[in-house]
Design a protein around this nucleic acid. Structure first.
Length: 793
DNA sequence: GCGGAGGGAGTACCG
DNA sequence: ACCGGTACTCCCTCCGCG
């Protein structure tokens, strides 16, 4: 019989020395199915050395005792574009056999022994995660005790096919709270006191520990609840780093097993730091944070707030530290449980918004849903490439960390400081991908300095002089042609569809997924960890990029436009509605790359610094780029003042008014009329505190947190405030959770945060830091004299 | 012993 | 665990200073 199913998860199981592939999915009757394929044997390639007869090499391989090689076949493949003969060796234990063959005479290289069997299976059979497949099967009785409505044995590998609808997924979102009076909770001593869950249908369920904080029953109920609801996807926040390992450990201590997946096994750590649940896609919303760089302190509450899930009322935030206090108070315990439930609701709300993109990334890249979300962008690009490589018979290079050599990147112009009117921003569309495509940049088209110019000729990069054959199209070109073509096609189709339709939403997500991979291709090429790393490719791309923008500047100036600023692929010029379209055409004609008029600023302000400016758009919104306002490591109070300063300057063209506003704010600060939270400075811990070469404020604050039992890891953000006192800054900081408003050094916030941020803008009009600070005895007379002598004011 | 200059460490941004 | 280019703050060392 034939069944159709949507593939959601895949794992491999070894039964009696034989590896099976288990495909988990939903069939077209909404039944949960497990399709087992026992016919796939994993493999690797043994590349035949020059001058050896493949038939003999193959025979030799088969003769080796204990190779475990079940079969071998001679195949023609490509490696970096060059045709090679290889022996495809099928065997049960790829790792050992590949090792044996590495030193065999006649074998030049061993490849793809580092690709996991489930990925070989997906790639070779062209399976598409989160998509429909048809497969010839025989039904088998569920004697394995797995949680599935049907179990099938595949008679042949499944085949992907197009089907527009998507099955109704069961999704469970959850959040947990632990009781600890000793800092970060530890599973060997601190119980889980609340788990809040909510399903995709909005059904809420809370599991709460008993008065004695005994969590055995709670955990049993949680496991049972998951088993009963049988979700296809489980969503949490911080689950990979925290929740899953905590729950597993906690269960072990209570002599239980956290068997909530579809084979009643424990969650297990997998690649990319992902924690995997067999048969269920486990998603961690923390992995989505890089989608929202605007959210600087990456908490669930901040993300929910950013996505306006909480527009009705700002929820009360209860810090982890205070959980124990809340729990121990009858009345406040209700607040804690409500808070926990709200977290679960936020998780559901956010996943409703981001799941489309996650699914499309999984479909495009070909990694199962849970993996694709945890994988860093470099690995997403790589899996997409591996998939394409298979299609054209290209073998996958090994991952060998290459020696790092830096190279020159994009060109940044010095801005013309001051306030400008009517400024156009021209952007090259997908500049690096377009360049790589236009000049056929690829590791396999690169012609080394010693090599002859091939028939058909070469493109030679400016400055760096790297050469690339014009024909045939290289691997990167194939990929970028597909990506850029697909994105354009999707965007064209989207124009014909109602914006509120489901179809539009799906296409928008697909378009975003394609964009993510396209934009990362250049960075991938220059990443020493990449399988298809090629410094010449990345270096040539940026060289052509510099050439491109330099040419564009010349053309703009020739057209009579003044260039105010430019960075990598953008140009800021005076706006002339007649000249701009002509310039666009001229640039496209001369360079073969598309430019577009991205926006026109009514007013735009530059300091002398690159990469920092603010512009007013016709609709009244203000773009702020690079300045303190958009930085996460400045106190909110300074950012607010700078933002308002910019608004006054850009909208009213009135620096004096802005200065007056700043002075008012300083007065307010002096009264300590400011919430403590506006004084917090957040900085990331980029290494373990011990390893810092110098003393730094955020590191000292981190040490104080650790001393109180906080578990801090690299990548965590530390929030601290500056206190009054003597000496270096690092000696008078305190984590904000321990601090009171009365102890903070308000003068620090005035002189080192608010005033510099405001003066950054106002200095252009001669309003210096000194002029913003109220006149006091602390002001040195000499400075006032200097001020007096400055001519421009 | 102290203050300031200048280089270095550290972080976060832009495209 | 994607690239290079850039701004900026605070730390730290060193130098001058009879």
């Amino acid at each position: 019989m034939k069944v159709s199913f949507c593939l959601l998860d895949i794992n491999s199981e070894t039964k009696a020395g034989k590896t099976e592939l288990w495909l988990w999915g939903i069939d077209d009757h909404e039944e949960r199915v497990l399709v087992i394929d026992r016919s796939f044997v994993d493999y690797f390639y043994a590349v035949v050395a020059d001058g050896y007869d493949p038939t003999e090499v193959k025979a030799k391989i088969m003769e080796i005792p204990n190779t475990l090689a079940v079969n071998a076949e001679i195949v023609s493949r490509k490696f970096f574009g060059k045709p090679v003969q290889a022996i495809k060796v099928y065997c049960e234990n790829v790792g050992n056999t590949a090792k044996l063959l590495r030193s065999l005479e006649g074998v030049k290289d061993v490849l793809e022994d580092d690709i996991r069997i489930s990925m070989h299976y997906i790639v070779d059979n062209d399976l598409v995660p989160c998509s429909w497949h048809q497969v010839e099967v025989q039904e088998e009785k569920n004697e394995l005790g797995v949680r599935a409505d049907r179990i099938y044995i595949a008679q042949a590998p499944p085949k992907a096919f197009e089907k527009p609808d998507f099955p109704q997924l069961r999704i469970l979102s959850f959040s947990m709270a632990c009781y600890s009076r000793e800092g970060s909770p530890k599973p060997d001593r601190n119980p889980v006191v609340i788990i809040s869950t909510i399903t995709d249908k909005g059904e809420e369920k809370q599991l709460i520990a008993g008065e004695d904080r005994n969590d055995k029953l709670l955990l049993e109920h949680f496991i049972k609840h998951v088993q009963d609801y049988d979700p296809d996807i489980i969503v949490g926040f911080g689950t990979n780093a925290l929740d899953w390992s905590y729950l597993v450990e906690r269960c072990r201590i209570l002599k239980m097993k956290l068997g909530l997946d579809r084979v009643q096994a424990e969650p297990h750590t997998s690649v990319y730091g992902h924690v995997s649940l067999t048969g269920i896609a486990s998603l961690d919303l923390e992995d989505f944070m890089n989608q929202f760089p605007e959210v600087k302190v990456e908490t669930l509450e901040n993300l929910a707030d950013h996505l306006i899930l909480t527009k009705l009322k700002k929820p009360v935030i209860i810090e982890d530290v205070d959980f124990a206090d809340y729990w121990d108070n009858q009345q406040r315990r209700l607040e804690l449980t409500a808070f926990s439930m709200n977290r679960a609701r936020s998780i559901k709300g956010i996943s409703d918004l981001v799941l489309d993109l996650a699914l499309q990334l999984s479909i495009l890249v070909g990694l199962p849903l849970d993996y694709v979300m945890t994988a860093a962008v470099g690995f997403r690009v790589e899996w997409f490439m591996i998939r394409q490589a298979q299609k054209i018979g290209e073998m996958v290079p090994k991952r060998t960390e290459q020696h790092y050599r830096s190279y020159a990147g994009g060109l940044v112009l010095n801005p013309r400081p001051g306030l400008h009117e009517k400024i156009a921003v021209l952007d090259f569309k997908s500049m690096y991908p377009s360049i790589m495509l236009a000049y056929n940049l690829s590791p396999d088209t690169y012609i080394g300095p010693e090599e002859e110019v091939p028939v058909g000729g070469v493109y030679e990069a400016p400055e760096v002089k790297h050469r690339f054959r014009k024909k045939p199209p290289g691997f990167y070109k194939e990929i970028l042609t597909y990506l850029l073509g697909t994105r354009n096609a999707i965007r064209d189709k989207m124009k014909e569809i109602t914006k509120t339709s489901v179809e539009y939403r799906v296409m928008d997500a697909r378009q975003k997924a394609v964009k993510i991979i396209t934009n990362a291709a250049y960075g991938y090429a220059g990443w020493t960890g990449a399988r298809w790393y090629s410094k010449p490719v990345a270096e040539a791309a940026s060289a052509w990029g510099r050439h491109t923008i330099l040419t564009a500047i010349k053309l703009a100036e020739k057209a009579g436009l003044q260039v105010i600023y430019g960075d990598t692929d953008s140009l800021f010029t005076t706006y002339d509605p007649k000249k701009i379209p002509e310039l666009e055409k001229k640039i496209e004609k001369e360079l073969g790359l598309e430019v577009e008029l991205d926006k026109v600023y009514d007013h735009v302000f530059f300091t002398e610094a690159k990469k920092r400016y603010a512009g007013l758009l016709p609709d009244g919104t203000i773009d702020i780029v690079g300045l303190e306002v958009i930085r996460g490591d400045w106190a909110e109070v300074a950012k607010k003042v700078q933002e308002h300063t910019l608004e006054i300057v850009l909208k009213n063209n009135s620096p004096e008014k802005a200065a007056a506003y700043v002075r008012t704010m300083i007065q307010k600060l002096k009264q300590r009329d400011v919430p403590l939270r506006d004084l917090i400075i957040w900085k990331t811990l980029t290494k373990p505190p011990r390893e810092y070469a110098i003393k730094a404020p955020h590191v000292e604050a981190a040490k104080m947190l650790s001393a109180k039992g906080w578990k801090l890891t690299v990548g965590d953000k530390v929030g601290y405030v500056v206190l009054t006192g003597e000496g270096r800054l690092y000696s008078r900081v305190k984590p904000y959770v321990f601090a009171r408003l009365e102890e903070v050094d308000i003068d620090y916030y005035i002189s080192k945060q608010v005033v510099p941020a405001a003066a950054r803008i106002l200095e252009f009009w001669g309003i210096t830091e000194e002029k913003l600070l109220p006149n006091e005895k602390t002001n040195k007379p000499s400075k006032n004299l200097m001020e007096f002598m400055q001519p421009q004011t």
